[in-house]
């Protein structure tokens, strides 16, 4: 049982980096970006193929991240320059990435059996396998959180946040919102692909379907994080997203242990996220109901 939980935590932290990417587009930029499913698999595909062909694992992860940056740029370009609505622009990139990812890998699945990855290399250096995964995940997520904290504190980062909050106002203050929108999508999808690249190496294979539903998992992690860390500063909110992803993974691991099939998980996640998104509305109804009763109208 301990091992299951520990593995869920490590997995959760790695997926949490993806969720941080979703946080940038969904929460900071207020952009429903479905590129994520494609850019996550893109990161996985690039990372797997490059490692398979002998590229140093760290370099492969870097290449995966750059691929994600490019994917985010595509969605941003479609949205801001061609004026395609955000949701549709991101679906177009996502569907295009499906073909691209297949081209990159050459097959729907690429196994890294007996091939050195970031994780096996460190394990070979004498560290215990499970702890390597966890330590690496923590280090990576820490770097990402610090980077985000810095970035969104800068002038450009503030402008990106304002773009998600009130584009009309920030345009009146001289910011080209096309640029800030593209930048937000680029950073977000870069993180998503970084996460995909790390996870492909950790699980030992790249798969064309590994990104399916990633956006929903990202949302689940964000919402769980917000429930656990309400009303807090930016640093803790980012940490909350990682914690949310970990909690999500642990719940999934427990539900699986209870006998649900792994193929049921997407349904389970969808219901979880739908309920979580309903929560604010439910609270409003509950408050109204209470008020009505107090005033004797119920």
């Amino acid at each position: 049982m301990f091992w299951i939980i520990q593995s869920a935590i490590s997995q959760g932290i790695l997926w949490g980096i993806m969720a941080l990417g979703v946080y940038i587009t969904f929460r900071v930029l207020n952009f429903a970006d479905l590129t994520v499913d494609g850019s996550f698999a893109l990161g996985g595909a690039l990372s797997a193929v490059l490692v398979y062909h002998g590229v140093p694992p760290l370099l492969a992860v870097l290449a995966a991240t750059i691929g994600g940056l490019a994917a985010g740029f595509c969605t941003g370009f479609l949205n801001t320059k061609l004026r395609i609505p955000g949701l549709l622009a991101s679906i177009l990139t996502q569907i295009a990435l499906y073909s691209i990812n297949l081209r990159i890998m050459g097959s729907p699945n690429l196994s890294l059996l007996r091939i050195d990855t970031l994780f096996t290399k460190l394990a070979a250096a004498g560290f215990p396998d499970r702890w390597v995964t966890m330590a690496l995940a923590i280090v990576c997520s820490l770097i990402v959180i610090l980077l985000m904290y810095w970035l969104f504190g800068t002038e450009i980062g503030s402008a990106i946040r304002a773009t998600g909050n009130n584009p009309k106002m920030i345009r009146a203050l001289g910011v080209h919102t096309d640029t800030t929108t593209i930048l937000g999508l680029v950073f977000g999808n870069g993180l998503v692909a970084l996460s995909g690249g790390l996870i492909a190496q950790q699980q030992g294979y790249g798969d064309i379907g590994m990104g399916t539903g990633a956006i929903v998992i990202g949302l689940a992690a964000i919402i769980i994080g917000e429930v656990l860390f309400p009303q807090t500063n930016f640093m803790l909110r980012l940490t909350g997203v990682i914690v949310g992803a970990v909690v999500y993974r642990i719940v999934i691991a427990l539900v699986l242990k209870m006998g649900l099939r792994s193929t049921d998980m997407k349904l389970f996640t969808a219901i979880l996220v739908a309920l979580a998104l309903y929560l604010p509305t439910l609270r409003g109804h509950a408050r109204q109901f209470q008020l009505r009763r107090r005033n004797g109208h119920a």
Binding site: T154, A159, I170, L173
Partner: peptide, 20 residues
């Protein structure tokens, strides 16, 4: 403060310096 800082940089090039 953040809103004021955004306004204080109206029309200027925004870089990687701290936003405020």
């Amino acid at each position: 403060d953040e809103n004021l800082a955004l306004a204080a940089r109206r029309g200027q090039r925004r870089g990687l310096a701290w936003g405020i």
